[in-house]
Design a protein around this nucleic acid. Structure first.
Length: 346
DNA sequence: AAAAGACTCAACCGCGCGATT
DNA sequence: GAATCGCGCGGTTGAGTCTTT
């Protein structure tokens, strides 16, 4: 049995909100609150809208003190650092940025920040994919552009982006969490990062967004809802104070330094990872992993990537548990994907 | 000036979760 | 314990806008 629809879709208006609808909703909520039932609210005030739509409109647009656009550099850094720490938990990230909504941050990340971070990395990934043995079998394939290649066309953009960002972030944090991998000489941003990592107490960076911390934030959020929006700024400042450690490491970097740290080495000899970090690369470089274990065909690779796509889309593969815990579990997504594949093939 | 392509963002969708019955 | 309900979340869509050719 499927889920019952939340409203009668045939009798509900969809699409952009009119100024009259906005005024009706805003006026009512400001005077009476939501009444604790969004589903019943539109009928109560004579709006032909789904309750969920009303909730969204209020939270993302009509609520007081909402800021739209104009993200500051500081906000950029906070979003980046939190995304690195906890992944796409937009509501948690939004709770750290007064006046910002999860939807706004999500849009901002997807349309701008992600591109800023990933930059030209995509082409490098595609270049590497196109040089896999399958394609080398065929001189014509080898000469083809990526866009003409039927196998690469099967990879969704999101899969590739997550793959490269995942690699990117994993390599960043596995490197900085493991002093054994640090070479004799580092460039200034690397020095700063390693100093920060040493000054932090072990797993502090990762604990700063532990389940308990997230729960605390959620409880604070509930407190806001019960007590009204007038206290939001005050409550959020408390949360921010509590979470100051979360941002401490990243926010001590300049934008340029953060950018530099986030440039993965498409060429292992010139990126931020020095040649002596081969050990780390063996851990995190999925392509090397594929090569070494002999993932023989393009079909296996496509299965592996598509599975990654499916799983990560629905199960928060960006969770800190799978991404950044310094306990040797860095690559579990990759490992699980590959192992499943290997089992299937046996 | 117009067409095509790229980008933005408000809104929608489906699902998981916790509360309630 | 199962079924139902509402909320909140993250992913996705598509219309409108902007930029490029």
């Amino acid at each position: 049995m499927g889920r019952a629809p939340c409203c009668d879709k045939a009798n509900v208006k969809r699409g952009p909100w009119s100024t009259e609808e906005d005024a009706t909703l805003k006026d009512y909520i400001e005077k009476n609150g939501t009444g604790g039932n969004w589903i019943a609210l539109p009928q109560k005030i004579g709006l032909k809208r789904c309750g969920k739509s009303c909730r969204l409109r209020w939270l993302n647009y009509l609520r007081p003190n909402i800021k739209h656009g104009g993200f500051t550099e500081e906000e950029d850094k906070i979003i980046c650092s939190l995304y690195i720490s906890i992944g796409s938990r937009w509501s948690v990230i939004a709770a750290q940025l007064p006046g910002r909504t999860d939807n706004d941050i999500k849009n901002y990340w997807n349309t701008r920040l992600k591109k800023k971070l990933l930059g030209k990395r995509k082409q490098t990934i595609m270049d590497r994919l196109s040089s896999l043995p399958h394609h080398q079998d065929n001189q014509r394939d080898r000469n083809k552009g990526v866009e003409d290649n039927p196998y690469l066309q099967n990879l969704s953009n999101s899969a590739i982006e997550r793959l490269e960002l995942h690699m990117h972030l994993q390599s960043t944090f596995s490197f900085y969490n493991n002093p054994a991998l640090w070479p004799n000489s580092l460039n200034p941003p690397q020095e700063k990062m390693t100093q920060n990592m040493q000054s932090l107490n072990g797993e502090q960076m990762f604990e700063s967004f532990s389940p308990q911390r997230i729960k605390n934030n959620m409880e604070a959020q509930e407190f806001e809802d019960v007590n009204g929006y007038s206290t939001i700024a005050q409550k959020r400042s408390t949360i921010q104070e509590q979470d100051v450690n979360t941002h401490r490491m990243i926010s001590t970097f300049t934008q340029a330094e953060l950018d530099e740290l986030l440039i993965i080495n498409s060429n292992k000899n010139v990126g931020f990872l020095p040649p002596s970090s081969n050990q780390m690369m063996a851990e995190v470089d999925c392509f090397k992993e594929i090569d070494e274990v002999g993932l023989a065909s393009k079909d296996q690779l496509l299965w592996w990537l598509n599975d990654f796509d499916t799983n990560s889309a629905s199960s928060s593969s960006w969770d800190s548990t799978s991404l950044v815990y310094p306990s040797g579990e860095m690559c579990q997504d990759f490992a699980v994907g590959y192992n499943n594949n290997a089992n299937q093939l046996q």
